[in-house]
Design a protein around this nucleic acid. Structure first.
Lengths: 218, 218
DNA sequence: TACTTTTCTTGAACACGTTCAAATTGAGGG
DNA sequence: CCCTCAATTTGAACGTGTTCAAGAAAAGTA
């Protein structure tokens, strides 16, 4: 019985995510989710092995939203600065409804054993999807980024995105404008910084940096 | 009755930290701590408002250990490269006994509401102490760092230290050698990068970066 | 249809962090 | 010595995430 089953699963996910948004992570207890969905607690656990798994569901949904918004916004952004801003801002847009929940989300996600951890092996698919957004942002940019950087750039920018997300979680300014200003200020610095790669003195350090980055990852 | 009271508090802290080291965070339940210390659960809560507060106790202890080791190691380190390496390595040394516990620690610490959060207002004193280590590392270095960077450098390096700590938590290599190699590889890159500040093209971007960094913090 | 097997669902039970009213202890004053 | 009051200590109780044996419903088989 796949269809009814899928319905129940979806129901649990929908109820959970709505409650996360509306009353926060702590108050959204498994019992409350079950009650709201009209099922038993154990049944919710049949579909989601833990409360963290529901967070993963949220993560996937936010990411899909980000991908969709970024694809739209990247259509009319030509240079790298514009494309990066679009990518980061649409990411923030996708997360926005869950800001109050950010602290709990990040605490869950950062645990090495968590299924949501963006660095862990378990979520390679999710990270790859997120990385892909940055890859298209970089690849289709005109003018292109310096050659020797091109292959590593998406991963490095994705790392910056993680840092921005962390900043956003702590950002209590209204509508998280402070994070918006950070993005608008930092992106031009990054793109201007990239053009320095052609200066010999800078280039040599950059080479060493890239080789260190590769050796550490490998 | 301050002396007996202080003894109880210390006993709880000692037992808790030892259990954190020996059996990990999850298995160190408040009941287990109380049992091991020969007191009741409620009594432990009289001295520490939460399990997180015990983590803070650990944080303070690790930090004191770091300060002591760094002070010792910085006595015979002259240039910035050596001083930075010493500061970072002694930091890793101080954390080492708690590595298995790193994931839980960081999950606790990263929560905006946590008393241990290094970015939050509540732990200004602890952050200031940690920052001070980097300040002495930078100030007494010969040759001195470029003038315009000097005041911001400690804070930026401290941020790098946070990043290294995060890397260390995820580092499952034996004795966390990978993190050691990261430090040894990255520090020379940083110091070499600093000398680029004098190149006009780089300097202008650096100025903008510093002004952005200040405007975001302020 | 009747039987078996798999999938789904239930709710009581467990250990956990945390709270709190009540009991105990100890210090200072008469 | 006893009384008073604050500091300390107790352990039962609450709500939480999670588990699991048992049952109900659906699907498969003949």
């Amino acid at each position: 019985m796949t269809v009814k089953s899928e319905q129940t699963r979806q129901l649990v996910a929908d109820v959970a995510l709505r409650m996360f948004r509306e009353i926060g992570f702590a108050k959204t207890t498994m019992r409350a989710i079950a009650a709201e969905a009209g099922i038993s607690v154990g049944n919710a656990y049949y579909y989601f092995a833990s409360k963290d798994d529901l967070v993963q569901e949220l993560y996937l949904q936010v990411q899909a939203e980000h991908a969709a918004r970024a694809a739209e916004a990247l259509k009319d952004a030509g240079d790298l600065t514009g494309r990066l801003k679009a990518t980061l801002h649409t990411g923030l847009d996708a997360m926005a409804p869950y800001h109050r929940f950010g602290g709990d989300f990040i605490a869950t996600a950062i645990r090495p054993t968590s299924p949501v951890n963006p660095f862990a092996a378990g979520s390679t698919a999710a990270r790859e999807a997120s990385l892909a957004i940055f890859r298209t942002a970089v690849e289709a940019a005109k003018p292109q980024a310096p050659k020797k950087l091109r292959s590593d750039l998406p991963e490095l920018l994705w790392l910056c995105y993680m840092a921005v997300t962390l900043f956003w979680v702590y950002d209590t300014s209204e509508g998280q404008q402070r994070t918006r200003r950070l993005v608008d200020g930092a992106v031009p610095l990054i793109t201007r910084g990239l053009s320095l790669a052609r200066i010999p003195g800078v280039g040599r350090i950059l080479d060493d940096f890239l080789s260190l980055s590769r050796s550490i990852r490998g």
